[in-house]
Design a binder for these strands. Structure first.
Lengths: 108, 108
DNA sequence: TTTAGTATATAATCTATTTATATACATAAT
DNA sequence: ATTATGTATATAAATAGATTATATACTAAA
């Protein structure tokens, strides 16, 4: 993480939900995807993503199943639920507000 | 705080530095200022701002002196240092990157 | 057979923020 | 008078999301 790790805090779940909106995926793939999409700046740690998955499953935002893991290590896939889609919409809307307000507070 | 308190985490010091860039100020005034400038959405708690001041003073970003507190409770004023100004510039630059990247990661 | 890459998982630790609590002065309302 | 409200600072304890450290396991290339 080239940014302070506090920077992603509060956004990790939103970013995961946005990726799962497109298609089911698994931890390792999501981590690589975030690394690419963030121009190599956000490298989420294993422990961070797996504990986030655990929280989100308990909260009913995602559900999980084992993939076959053909030709490599086994994969645990995650799928977004209807509740997850609703929460994503709320978090996106919240982000649009935060973005405007933080820009006003931080820029000269 | 109408936003999750995790949202401001990592930005509190930047916001304080930006306000001190204009003029010396004190905790209560800065809190009210942030509340106004954030459209009533960010209500930083006393403990948060005073512990942030403590950290920033230790890090040499700000220095402090007592105001006279005429006609009310005593005020502890804070002034930004040269190091504080340098750190603000770095944090602003970092924010511009974060803003772009988080928009790419969160928006549909 | 050793290294690197893929893949998941948990315990212990870190740290910025919150909650709770305390102090103290000024002013307006009851 | 005294109660409530606003101004103003401060610290201890709790919270919670992130990191570090560690463990397991399979595949493929050197």
């Amino acid at each position: 993480m080239t940014f302070s790790s506090d920077i992603l805090r509060g956004h990790t779940e939103t970013v995961i939900l946005k990726i799962l909106l497109e298609k089911d995926s698994y931890g390792y793939e999501i981590t690589k995807r975030i690394l690419e999409d963030s121009e190599g700046r956000i490298d989420i740690k294993d422990a961070t993503i797996y504990t986030a998955f655990r929280r989100m499953e308990i909260d009913g935002l995602i559900c999980t199943y084992w993939g076959d893991g053909a030709g490599g290590a086994r994969r645990r896939y995650y799928s977004i639920t209807d509740k997850g889609r609703r929460v994503y919409t709320e978090k996106l809307s919240e982000w649009l507000d935060i973005d405007r307000i933080l820009n006003a507070l931080i820029r000269k």
